[in-house]
Computed example of a mutant assay.
Amino acid sequence: MTVADVMVELAALEDPKIREVNEKHGDDHAVNLGKLRAIAKRLKTQQDLARELWRTGDSAARLLALLICRPKAFERDELDTMLRESRTPKVHDWLVNYVVKKNAHSDALRVAWSADPDPVVASAGWALTTERVAKKPDGLDLVVLLDEIEADLKGAPDRLQWAMNHCLAQIGIEHAEHRARALDIGERLQVLKDYPTPPGCTSPFAPVWINEIVSRRTERQPAES
């Protein structure tokens, strides 16, 4: 399929009700994500087409591009440019989680983005740091991370605050030796304490989040014989 063919197909799937819901979360696409994934499954991996779809600037086309691209094929500067072009939450999140995390330049970008003055870019760096905290903590200074979170979390813009708060919770969940401090920071700063949380979901308030996940893991551990 050509880019033109794909854009016609995406346009035919647009639903005003989906757009209305998405706009409440800062997104601007109007295509059901299940149907978008079905198109991606049919197209399979097509790196050249993915790049062309990205260049359209259309959010639905960019989401599709992220599903059919080859994550390891992007160069560092290309990913940096793509992230700075990703101003809607869904495109930003999919780029970080589906592409950047699988790319060889992910850690170099993590370091660079975390220190970026643009809070949206910085939030991507913190998301990658959270991934490291959970899966590859060797080489990270968790004390320094907690110092940064303690100093900056309260006044951070929304998306950066959310990413830093997730990192705080992840440190408390995964690293028992830092749990007490993570809980203390969360309790003192009170960030997201009153965030509306649907029944059955875990609150993003770090102390509640930490204690709930740790409790679940403890309950799943087999009893000692």
Rank of each mutant, 00 (worst) to 15 (best):
T129H: 00
V100T: 06
T129C: 09
L128M: 15
H105F: 14
S114L: 03
A124I: 04
A127I: 13
L95Q: 04
Y98L: 15
A108H: 10
D93Q: 09
L95D: 03
A127R: 12
S114G: 15
V100Y: 00
A108G: 11
L95F: 07
R110D: 02
V99K: 07
H92E: 06
G125D: 01
V99P: 03
V120Y: 02
S114F: 04
V121T: 06
D116I: 06
V100N: 00
V96R: 03
A112S: 15
N97Y: 08
K102D: 07
L128N: 02
D116W: 02
W126G: 00
D118S: 13
N103C: 15
P119N: 07
V111Q: 09
Y98K: 14
Y98S: 13
P119D: 08
V99Y: 09
D93K: 01
A115T: 14
W126E: 00
S106W: 08
A104M: 07
A127F: 03
A115N: 12
P117K: 05
L95P: 03
P119K: 03
A104P: 07
S106T: 02
K101L: 12
L95N: 01
P117S: 05
A115Y: 06
N103T: 11
L109S: 00
R110C: 09
A108R: 10
K101A: 04
V99T: 14
W94F: 15
H105E: 13
K101F: 01
D118I: 12
T129M: 07
A104D: 15
A115S: 13
S106K: 15
H105Y: 14
A122P: 06
N103S: 09
W113H: 11
R110N: 02
W94K: 14
W113C: 05
D118G: 12
H92F: 07
K102E: 11
A112Q: 14
A115G: 10
S123R: 02
D116L: 06
P119W: 07
T129V: 12
W94H: 14
T129K: 04
Y98N: 15
P117N: 07
H92M: 11
P117D: 08
A115M: 12
L95T: 03
A115H: 10
V99A: 09
S114M: 13
H92R: 09
L95A: 01
D118Q: 11
H92C: 06
T129A: 12
N97M: 10
V120D: 08
W113F: 13
A127C: 12
P119T: 06
A112V: 15
V120S: 03
W94V: 15
S123A: 11
G125M: 00
A104S: 14
A127Y: 06
A124T: 03
L128S: 02
H105R: 10
A104K: 13
D107Y: 08
A124L: 02
N97D: 14
W94C: 06
N103H: 14
V121C: 06
P117I: 05
